[in-house]
């Protein structure tokens, strides 16, 4: 057998979301649910019980008219790198059901390994991890529309955004078939990225100079959520508004101006 494997530079897939462009339409959420066979319930009023891999939060500046301002913040899994892959959730999983890959930088979740202790949910400050409190039930006929590329989850396990990793797997098939070494930027894009009508989401390899995210992450207005906790997330946000950037992290009163850390 040939030992010539895909010896390419490690990738670090990440996202840059321009919050000034986001209108809060929710197309990304819908696309994500459909793409990833995410189960839903008849009554979804209690958001703490339903599953939304990508959730759009509404931020307000807390001021009165005419200074009132809102910002919509889509929140997928941050795929934290932490310190050398020591993301908050990965190291706590007792059964090794969640893992960090140095090859793609993606935090995986294996549903058939997870036994539902929910320690990872306690560890994640972004609430990206969701528990299947119920068995998934699809409306009559809809189970035929499920994607075969994403395994369906059962009751009692934790699930989360995978950066549509199955799309990477599918894209790589073609790369190998054509005998190429590398995946092109547009060959692997997440469902939410493609669904966003405002082009607010950019997805790509944060290590690759040619990818759009590489430049965007160094934007002076770029920041990450809860950066100072040491989670080292791979999702960046851009906003020209100071108050939005300030809500990206916790600050003591009188702490200095919010500037993106060197990364």
């Amino acid at each position: 057998m040939k030992k010539a494997q895909e010896h390419t530079a490690p990738k670090k897939y990440g996202m840059v979301i321009d919050l000034d462009k986001c209108t809060g339409c929710g197309a990304c959420m819908a696309a994500c649910m459909a793409e990833n066979n995410v189960p839903f319930r008849e009554d979804e009023t209690d958001k703490n019980l339903s599953i939304t891999w990508l959730r759009v939060y509404k931020l307000t500046n807390g001021k009165k008219f005419p200074n009132a301002d809102v910002c919509y913040l889509p929140r997928p899994c941050m795929h934290c790198e932490g310190h050398h892959g020591h993301s908050p959730c990965v190291s706590v999983c007792p059964a090794t059901a969640t893992d960090y890959s140095y090859d793609t930088g993606i935090v995986s979740q294996i549903y058939t390994r997870c036994f539902g202790c929910r320690y990872c949910m306690a560890a994640c400050p972004y609430h990206v991890r969701y528990f299947n409190w119920w068995d998934p039930v699809w409306p009559e006929g809809m189970e035929k529309m499920l994607s075969p590329n994403v395994s369906v989850r059962t009751r009692g396990v934790v699930e989360k955004c995978s950066f549509c990793f199955h799309r990477y797997q599918i894209a790589m098939e073609k790369v190998r078939y054509e005998g190429r070494a590398e995946l092109a930027e547009d060959e692997y894009q997440t469902a939410c990225t493609q669904a966003c009508p405002a082009n607010a989401i950019t997805f790509g390899d944060l290590n690759n100079h040619d990818h759009a995210v590489y430049k965007l992450k160094t934007h002076p207005d770029a920041f990450r959520l809860l950066e100072r906790l040491g989670t080292n997330p791979k999702v960046y946000y851009i906003s020209s508004r100071e108050w939005v950037r300030r809500q990206g992290d916790n600050y003591l009163e009188n702490e200095g101006k919010v500037v993106a850390k060197a990364h």
Partner: peptide, 21 residues
Amino acid sequence: ENGVKQNSAQTHKGACFVCHK
């Protein structure tokens, strides 16, 4: 044996998202 993607932070073996979906 063939040195394929031993890239897991947890096990230093193949990461889960090589063979799982």
